[in-house]
Design a protein around this nucleic acid. Structure first.
Length: 181
DNA sequence: TGGCCGATATGCT
DNA sequence: GCATATCGGCCAA
């Protein structure tokens, strides 16, 4: 049974934690989510720093939110929280299906470099423009974990504000997570 | 309308 | 470890 919209109605922190171990499928490709970050109304959140485009975080849950950064990268989020601003950034996947195609699009040889970063996974999955605002469950298929994972949390990566909040989650010891700076 | 900044990735030292 | 590519979104003016 795939996850439904209501999975995303919970606060972003809870959704971020619960997405670890979920298998994300798009087209012929799929990967297990091994790293996420939660954003809500905090100072690092696009709800604050991109008030117009980030309004989606307050207006919706279970919507796709893709943003671009540094002119050349795009990152995938799912909005969350039915009663407040929330989104979860998908930061890394362990490739599961369509691995050859993903390797080729990324121009890498090893599985652990295919989707070990938020912008990398967008390239690996070959996500098109125009997904923002679409219903998550219409675009992706999300299968819940079959096993429990050892989940570690820590500060979010690449932000200058609210660095103290431990809102990043990842599978402890996984070689498929993004590398810390 | 211009200038600044960023939830990044990569390649070089 | 550090520079840098490259541009959308934001706000001040």
């Amino acid at each position: 049974m795939p996850l439904d919209r209501e999975f995303f109605a919970a606060p972003a922190l809870e959704v971020a934690r619960r997405l670890i171990g979920v298998t994300l499928a798009y087209g012929d490709c799929a990967g297990e989510i091994v790293e996420t970050e939660a954003y809500s109304g905090d100072e690092a959140s696009h709800f604050v720093t991109r008030r117009h485009t980030g309004a989606l975080m307050g207006d919706t849950y279970a919507s796709v939110y893709v943003y671009s950064i540094y002119g050349m990268h795009r990152c995938l989020n799912f909005t969350a929280d039915r009663s407040g601003p929330g989104a979860v950034l998908i930061r890394a996947l362990r490739p599961v299906r369509g691995i050859d195609a993903m390797r080729q699009r990324r121009g890498v040889t090893h599985d652990h470099q295919v989707a070990s970063g938020p912008a990398k996974l967008v390239v690996a999955l070959d996500l098109p423009d125009g997904l923002t605002g679409r219903d998550v469950t219409d675009v992706f298929r999300l299968e819940p974990p079959t096993e429990a994972h050892d989940i570690e949390s820590g500060p979010r990566i690449g932000i200058s504000k609210a660095r103290d909040l431990p809102w990043r989650f990842h599978v402890r010891g996984s070689p498929f997570v993004s590398r810390r700076r």
